[in-house]
Simulated scan of single mutants.
Amino acid sequence: MTDTPTIPVFDGHNDTLLRLHMRGDDDLGVGAFLNGGVGGHIDLAKARAGGLAGGMFAIFTPSPQLGVDYLELMRAATYDVPLPDRLPLGDAQKAVLAMAALLLRIERASDGAVAVCRSGAEIRAAMARGAFATVLHIEGAEAIDADLDALHVLHAAGLRSLGPVWSRPTIFGHGVPFRFPSSPDIGPGLTETGKRLVKACDELRIVFDLSHLNEAGFWDVAKLSTRPLVATHSNAHALTPHARNLTDAQLAAIRETGGLVGLNFATCFLREDGRMRGDTALDVMARHLDHLIDRLGVDHVGFGSDFDGAIVPDALGDAAGLPRLLVHLKAHGYDDATLEKIAWRNWVALLERVWGE
């Protein structure tokens, strides 16, 4: 197979804003994204080279007291990475506002090359004119207060997708640790404040991301939410028994609601041995896609790369390497219509179902 499929990709999750924010200067971050040349998995040049047409841009607030290299710890045969305590509200809000502002500054400085999208119609329009379509997402809701006032302000600023937890606890619920091997059935479910957050997100038509939530919390959301269930970047527990992956019962629940799961490219969630190693074949990505499609149906699976937040297969490299993945999947047996669904159509359709546009 030598022909590269000319199929655009809309990705369900990346941590590029955190990488840019950590440069310590917003002007440097804006320039690093628009001009490239400073490493990382995603910038505008790499996106164009790989056909990455847009995606969900996560805001994640790191814990200053983490004190461990969790990517390195996940190279071991078994592991249970220690997680930090809750973040203070003020610290989280400062970081979230800074990264949201960074994305808006990138849009303003891009001369139309980058668009922050708030509806399915805006995503489709941006892709049609060749602009890079971004969606504001928050991973870990530490910046949202118990009264949920910040949720409404952030929604007005463009927030359209929210994960209530990363893996550390919040006032809303409990995440799963980076633990292998392990079940995701770890700890209690949503708090009462978390249940109110689900209902508020439903009313505002904000995607409620289940990716880092523990199993009890997952089932709480399934009982409360009237919207499709979504895990933006998660894989199959039946193939890789990592606490972060979804069981077949969870996949069935997502299918019943017309939801979606985005395939996570992080190698520790793909490999049978749960290790975070770059020397990982693209075949393992195809195996997880096969399983997800078998359990969810072809209309309910997409990509959720975790670019700039994890080690991905060396054979993929970064966003510029996405055509290699599509070529591999075509050789694996997926036709162009299926690849288009997985690569972008399913995500846009899901967002339209949730957002009502």
Rank of each mutant, 00 (worst) to 15 (best):
E272M: 04
E272A: 15
D273Y: 01
G274H: 07
G274D: 09
G274F: 06
R275H: 00
R275Y: 07
R275K: 10
M276V: 01
M276A: 15
R277S: 13
G278P: 01
G278K: 04
G278I: 12
G278E: 01
G278W: 03
D279F: 07
D279E: 15
D279T: 05
D279V: 01
T280D: 10
L282I: 08
V284D: 13
V284Y: 08
M285E: 12
M285F: 01
M285W: 04
A286T: 05
R287I: 03
H288C: 03
H288V: 00
L289W: 04
D290K: 06
H291Q: 10
H291F: 11
H291Y: 04
H291K: 08
H291A: 09
L292H: 10
L292S: 04
I293H: 06
D294R: 11
D294Q: 15
D294T: 14
D294I: 00
D294W: 03
R295K: 15
R295G: 08
G297N: 15
G297K: 11
V298M: 03
V298E: 13
D299Q: 07
H300A: 12
H300F: 02
V301F: 11
V301L: 12
F303D: 00
F303K: 05
G304H: 04
G304N: 04
S305A: 14
S305M: 03
S305G: 03
S305P: 07
S305Y: 05
D306A: 09
D306N: 09
D306Q: 08
F307Y: 11
F307Q: 13
D308G: 05
G309K: 02
G309E: 05
A310D: 02
A310K: 02
A310L: 12
I311N: 02
V312F: 07
D314M: 03
D314C: 03
D314I: 05
A315Q: 15
A315V: 02
A315R: 14
A315Y: 06
D318V: 10
G321V: 08
L322G: 13
P323S: 07
P323A: 05
L325A: 01
L325F: 12
L326M: 12
V327H: 14
V327D: 13
V327T: 15
V327L: 14
H328R: 15
H328V: 06
L329C: 12
K330F: 03
A331F: 02
A331I: 03
A331C: 14
H332T: 01
Y334R: 14
Y334M: 11
D335T: 00
D335W: 00
D336F: 07
D336V: 14
D336H: 10
D336Q: 12
A337S: 15
A337P: 03
T338M: 14
L339K: 08
L339N: 09
E340C: 12
E340Q: 13
E340S: 10
I342L: 15
I342F: 07
I342P: 04
A343H: 09
W344I: 01
W344F: 15
R345M: 00
R345I: 00
R345Q: 13
N346M: 14
N346I: 10
W347E: 02
